[in-house]
Amino acid sequence: MSLLETLNDDIKVAMKSKDKEALAILRMIKTSIQNEQINKGEDLSPDEELTLVSREMKQRKESLSEFEKAGRSDLVEQASFGISIVARYLPEQLSDEELKSIITEAIASVDATSMKDFGKVMGVVMPKTKGKADGQKINALVKELIS
């Protein structure tokens, strides 16, 4: 079952249960995927769908951070709910230990010895962790492990 089919089924469930907040978020995700399909002119691969869902998650996390800084507890609650909905469509997130293992392997494979090799390491790590870990977290761990 493709992501769009799953979203359509979940939208129907949200409509039947009159869950307006979840319905709005699901529709935004669906619209994002459909817009990308229109721009591309063909169906998206599962990897491309994952990229779009990851982008939605990143936007919501950034919004949550901004709302917390501004002290807007009402919007923090909404953003947190949105994150929980979007998380359903992402693969299970990697633990810190799993991430460190992947990063350590990448460092060894490119013979990284200093921060000059940061880009090479990230180039190896990011495809392996796509959608399974936050980019900022990966960035921080790579910097920590290289130095």
Score class of each variant (00 low, 15 high):
67 F>H: 12
130 K>I: 02
36 E>A: 15
126 M>K: 06
50 L>R: 10
87 A>P: 01
62 E>N: 14
47 D>W: 00
22 A>Q: 13
61 K>Q: 13
64 L>Q: 05
58 K>D: 12
132 K>R: 15
36 E>R: 15
64 L>I: 02
11 I>Y: 08
108 A>N: 13
52 L>G: 02
77 E>S: 11
115 M>C: 00
75 L>V: 03
109 S>H: 05
11 I>N: 09
71 G>C: 04
9 D>R: 15
124 V>G: 02
128 K>D: 04
50 L>S: 04
128 K>M: 14
139 N>L: 12
79 A>Q: 08
61 K>C: 04
116 K>P: 00
32 S>T: 14
29 I>G: 04
90 L>M: 08
69 K>A: 13
33 I>Y: 02
22 A>V: 09
109 S>R: 11
98 E>A: 14
48 E>Y: 03
19 D>M: 06
50 L>K: 06
132 K>I: 05
110 V>L: 08
142 V>A: 06
45 S>W: 01
144 E>R: 06
65 S>Y: 08
81 F>M: 07
46 P>R: 09
81 F>Q: 13
71 G>F: 05
109 S>F: 00
99 L>Q: 09
134 D>G: 10
26 L>F: 10
110 V>Y: 09
102 I>L: 10
18 K>F: 11
14 A>K: 05
21 E>T: 09
69 K>R: 14
10 D>C: 01
12 K>A: 11
139 N>H: 13
120 K>E: 10
123 G>H: 03
70 A>C: 02
106 A>N: 04
125 V>Y: 01
112 A>R: 08
4 L>K: 15
96 D>R: 12
47 D>P: 00
28 M>E: 15
3 L>I: 12
25 I>Y: 01
